[in-house]
Amino acid sequence: MLTDFGYILLFIVTGAIFVGVALFVAKLVRPDRPNEIKLMTYECGEIPFGDARVQFNNRFYIIGLMFLIFEVEILLLFPWAVVFKEIGWFAFAAMFVFVFLIFIGFIYELGKGQLKWDIPKPRIPRYVEGVGVVDDDYREEKVNEPALQAD
């Protein structure tokens, strides 16, 4: 018989085999008539330009870092949570200090606005008597236009 983790391996293998079998059955039935246009990258009917692998916004990296910090923290909390009821007040105090310290950093991060996803300001033109429609933000935004970055 398998061990408990052996069963887990069995499940992973079963999942992969199922996908393999399904794709194989499809391979038997489906047509296969590739041509140059069909194998082109889909870009809404246009001819694709450039490589899709562009530089990405820094925000994703910061989110990744924050995630890592919280995951490690939670990882450390799991064994604590299992034996919590047996230890009682001491466990509570120890964890409270731990979570509190992490939270000071978190609140600092929030206060610095690192986790804010800045969105483009909506440009609302206004009507000025005698002048016509004025777009206040237009010139200003042109000057501070950020470097082209994918979202």
């Binding site: 059955v25 499809a26 391979k27 489906r30 069909k38 194998l39 082109m40 990258t41 694709p48």
Partner: peptide, 13 residues
């Protein structure tokens, strides 16, 4: 129907 759909792997992928 999905079984009989063609499988496309783009050249750039």
């Amino acid at each position: 129907k999905l079984i009989q759909k063609e499988d496309i792997i783009p050249t750039n992928a």
